[in-house]
Amino acid sequence: MTIIRYAHGGDIPVLAEIGMRAWEQAVTGVADLDALRDNARNAFVHFLQGNWVTVAVAETGGRIAGWAAREKMDEEITDLWVDPAMQRQGVGSALLAAIEDEMRRATFETVDLQTHARNAAALAFFRKHGYAVNWLSVAYSPKLDRNVESVGLRRQLTEDQPIGYGPGGF
């Protein structure tokens, strides 16, 4: 059973390691892991130190299995990382559902996120959960010294309400 809770400061080292393992899996074949590993690790630690209060943590069997964040607490999910050893066991789905429920309670109508265009596993996961491509972009990344293709995904959280009077509107 997966339990979702909010992060605390003591979770940062474990969350950073999970982020790293999942990041390495996601960028294999897209980027030079050896050249970027230290920068990526520092980025995870820095992000988590400054934003751990926005992080939802998934625990399975008393062990942290993944995490998700909404950095600005707006309609965008900025991070969703599941330990590769725990993928395909419902951890990502539980995290996503918890974040979406939180966003519905905050009255957001849509949820947005992005990933690199070659992250086939992430694209399949989000499409399975009702997300559709909202935009495509290509931008130069100085860290990678190359153009990187990004995909923006969106999901409608609320159903359109009929306009007008009476059942079903006009």
Rank of each mutant, 00 (worst) to 15 (best):
107 T>K: 02
28 T>E: 14
54 T>S: 11
113 L>I: 02
52 W>P: 07
40 A>P: 06
59 E>Q: 12
71 E>H: 01
93 S>Y: 01
114 Q>L: 15
55 V>N: 03
125 F>M: 00
66 G>A: 02
121 A>Q: 07
60 T>H: 14
99 I>T: 10
66 G>S: 00
102 E>Q: 10
59 E>D: 10
34 D>V: 10
108 F>T: 06
55 V>Y: 00
73 M>D: 14
73 M>P: 15
117 A>S: 08
121 A>C: 09
120 A>D: 08
49 Q>C: 15
122 A>H: 00
50 G>D: 13
66 G>Q: 02
32 D>T: 02
117 A>R: 07
86 M>H: 15
53 V>K: 14
62 G>A: 01
88 R>W: 13
54 T>D: 09
83 D>S: 02
31 A>W: 09
92 G>C: 10
82 V>A: 02
36 L>V: 05
71 E>Q: 01
35 A>E: 07
37 R>F: 01
57 V>K: 00
113 L>S: 02
96 L>C: 08
52 W>E: 07
84 P>N: 11
113 L>P: 00
68 A>E: 08
38 D>W: 08
73 M>A: 14
122 A>M: 02
48 L>W: 01
29 G>C: 05
58 A>L: 01
111 V>W: 03
33 L>Y: 01
50 G>H: 13
94 A>P: 02
122 A>N: 01
28 T>D: 15
62 G>P: 04
117 A>C: 10
30 V>L: 13
70 R>D: 11
64 I>P: 12
114 Q>S: 15
78 T>N: 06
64 I>N: 11
91 V>C: 09
102 E>W: 08
125 F>A: 03
53 V>Q: 15
118 R>C: 12
26 A>E: 00
45 V>Q: 03
87 Q>I: 12
96 L>M: 09
105 R>C: 04
116 H>K: 06
81 W>T: 10
115 T>R: 03
73 M>Q: 14
69 A>V: 07
46 H>Y: 11
34 D>H: 10
35 A>N: 06
71 E>G: 02
114 Q>P: 14
101 D>A: 12
121 A>F: 07
88 R>V: 12
127 R>W: 08
86 M>L: 15
52 W>R: 08
30 V>M: 14
49 Q>G: 15
119 N>H: 00
123 L>S: 07
105 R>M: 03
65 A>W: 09
26 A>Y: 01
46 H>A: 12
34 D>W: 09
30 V>Q: 13
39 N>F: 11
72 K>I: 04
64 I>Q: 11
125 F>E: 02
103 M>H: 09
125 F>D: 00
41 R>M: 12
108 F>C: 05
64 I>C: 11
92 G>N: 14
26 A>V: 01
47 F>N: 05
58 A>H: 04
73 M>C: 14
111 V>E: 04
106 A>H: 08
126 F>I: 02
28 T>I: 15
111 V>H: 05
49 Q>E: 15
38 D>A: 12
68 A>Q: 10
107 T>S: 03
44 F>K: 04
29 G>F: 01
107 T>V: 01
120 A>C: 09
34 D>R: 11
68 A>L: 10
108 F>G: 04
71 E>T: 00
116 H>M: 06
57 V>D: 00
78 T>F: 08
118 R>D: 11
26 A>I: 00
51 N>Q: 06
78 T>L: 07
54 T>C: 09
106 A>E: 06
44 F>M: 03
59 E>K: 12
76 E>D: 05
60 T>V: 14
121 A>I: 10
